[in-house]
């Protein structure tokens, strides 16, 4: 299947938004060649602010622009956005409900070579814990385009989680913020995934189908506000639920689904990163396999729950 870049989708979409709305500005902390915000720089240099290697300052500056009427898109790696700039996002952007849109790029283990310092395995936990913030975790490049557009429409702050490596397209041109979406119907087990793990979930559904198990694949591309009702409805339609995320089991999709199912009799299990940091590897695939983030792991959990 053809693969496409979420990063390019981000860069191209903010350029489109820049054309449509002169109040759209972009800020970057020296990672524009990775986040692809350089596309905005080329198109609208006067509205692009290279803030240097100073992520915290970038977010507060974006807050100042937003408080003055701008829609400020900031991009950096997810690990720096959610980590280094946490306080700036919390104190000024989120409390003040400012129109700052934060692209957490190269999230999860997708920056495989750079190792634990650059791999955000807890960004969803941190960002979803902040009141007033919307958190999107799009599954492919097409969905990034829609999520970035949706972010621009929302009055208030948004965090958009983007991965580094190209992904196949499974979404179908529709993005409803705050809602789970079904990518593949099925009635034995539901696999709820976001981001890169949607591909693993789709592959897991193929493997399960060959074994006579019907798997529903669900895309959780909004982690906040989280569609707990959608999870509860799903739980009534299937016999088990497995979550899949390239993120710590603490505070991410597994945690959110477990909370939603706290009074449900439908069993759930998760595929996620254990409570530990990432590390360097020569490929994302190698790293994902090492941390157990595979279609096979999802299949095993599903079969164990259904037995």
């Amino acid at each position: 299947m053809e693969r496409h870049s979420q990063r390019v989708a981000y860069g191209e979409t903010i350029v489109e938004l820049g054309a449509e709305n002169p109040n759209v500005v972009a800020l970057e902390a020296d990672l524009g060649k990775s986040t692809m915000s350089t596309l905005f720089q080329q198109a609208y240099p006067e509205r692009y602010f290279e803030m240097g290697i100073a992520e915290a300052d970038m977010i507060s500056t974006a807050a100042g622009l937003a408080a003055s009427g701008k829609i400020a898109f900031c991009s950096t790696f997810a690990v720096f956005a959610a980590g280094r700039a946490y306080d700036q996002i919390r104190q000024t952007v989120a409390i003040g409900k400012l129109n700052v849109k934060i692209c957490g790029s190269s999230s999860g283990l997708s920056d495989f070579g750079d190792g634990s310092t650059h791999q955000a395995v807890e960004d969803v936990a941190i960002m979803t814990a902040i009141p007033n913030l919307t958190v999107f975790t799009p599954a492919d490049a097409d969905e990034v385009r829609l999520a970035v557009r949706a972010a621009a429409e929302i009055e208030g702050p948004v965090y958009i989680r983007v991965v580094r490596n190209d992904l196949p397209t499974y979404t179908k041109g529709e993005f409803k913020p705050g809602k789970l979406s079904i990518l593949r119907p099925g009635n034995d087990v539901a696999i709820i995934a976001h981001g890169v793990m949607v591909e693993a979930a789709m592959n897991a559904a193929d493997i399960l189908e060959a074994k006579g198990i019907s798997a529903c694949v669900v895309n959780a591309s909004t982690m906040k506000p989280f569609d707990s009702e959608g999870v509860q409805q799903l739980a009534q339609q299937v016999k088990a639920i497995v979550t899949a995320e390239d993120h710590s089991r603490i505070g991410g999709l597994a945690s959110h689904v477990a909370l939603a199912l706290r009074q449900s009799s439908t069993p759930m299990d998760y595929v996620a990163i254990d409570d530990r940091f990432g590390q360097s590897a020569h490929s994302a695939k190698e790293l994902m396999e090492y941390y157990g983030l595979t279609a096979e792991a999802i299949v095993d959990k599903a079969i164990a729950l259904l037995d």
């Binding site: 915290a56 300052d57 507060s60 100042g64 622009l65 003055s68 701008k70 400020a72 700036q88 000024t92």
Partner: peptide, 10 residues
């Protein structure tokens, strides 16, 4: 930093 953002907007 917030003031810098406001000055940029101005």
């Amino acid at each position: 930093s917030i003031a810098v953002g406001m000055a940029l907007e101005m």
